[in-house]
Amino acid sequence: MLRVDGLHAHYGRAHILHGVSLDVAQGEVVCLLGRNGAGKSTTMKAIMGVVPPSAGQVLLDGKDLAGRASFEIARAGIGYVPEDRRIFAELTVEENLEVGRRAAPAGSQGWNPERAYTLFPVLAEMRRRPGGRMSGGEQQMLTIARTLMGNPRLLLLDEPSEGLAPVVVERMAEAILALKREGLSILLSEQNLAFANAVADRACLIETGQLRHTASMAALMADDEVRARYLSV
C-alpha cells in the first residue's frame, strides 16, 4: 500500500537521505532498524512532508504524495506519531484527541475518543488533564491515540518504545499488535530489537541514509552477521 522510491532529503545543506526505497503491504508491520543518525526519523518525516523530500516518490495506493503539504498527506491516509511525541501540553487529553479527529471514510468503523480509551484505558481516567502533566508513557499513548483519531490507513510510528519503562513497553507492544489485528498497516522505527521482534513482520535496515538490507523479522533474528554489521554499536 505504501511504496517509497529513491527518497532524498536535506536538512539545510546536509544531505541526510540518499535514495531510500521501501514498501509496506496492506496490514503489514514493517520496522525500520538502524543506529542513531542512520536516517530512520528523517525517512518518516520525509514521507510525512514534515521535512520536504528533495527527490523521490512516496506512493500511497499508487498516488504520489511527495512534495505535498503534510496536512494533505495526513488527509490522504497517513498518520504520523513523532519521536518526541509533541503533545499539546496546554490542551487536555480530550482536546488533544479533538485536534486529531477527522471524519472516517464512508463504510469504515471510525475512531472516536471512546474507542481510543478502550485501546489505552489509562487515558480514560485523565480526560481533563493537560498533556503537559502526564508521564512519558501516558503521553506516548496519547500521541498514538491522537493520530488514530484521524483514521489513518497507514501509521508511521517513530520509536514508540523510546524512554519508556519496561512494563509500559509491553503495553505498547500489545496495543500495536491490536492495531495490526484490525488490519492497520504500520511502519515503525526502533532501536529496541526485542520490541521490533515482538511486533514487526519484516525489517528494513538503514544506514547512512540508505536502505541496506531487508528481511523477515524471523530471518533477521537468525542472522547474527547482518545484525552485527548494521545494528551493533
Binding site: M48, A69, F71, A74, R86, V99, R102, G150
Partner: peptide, 11 residues
C-alpha cells in the same frame, strides 16, 4: 503551541 504537528494531523 505546535503548528507543524497540527499540520501533520491533517489540519
Amino acid at each position: 503551541q505546535d503548528r507543524e504537528m497540527v499540520a501533520a494531523l491533517g489540519v
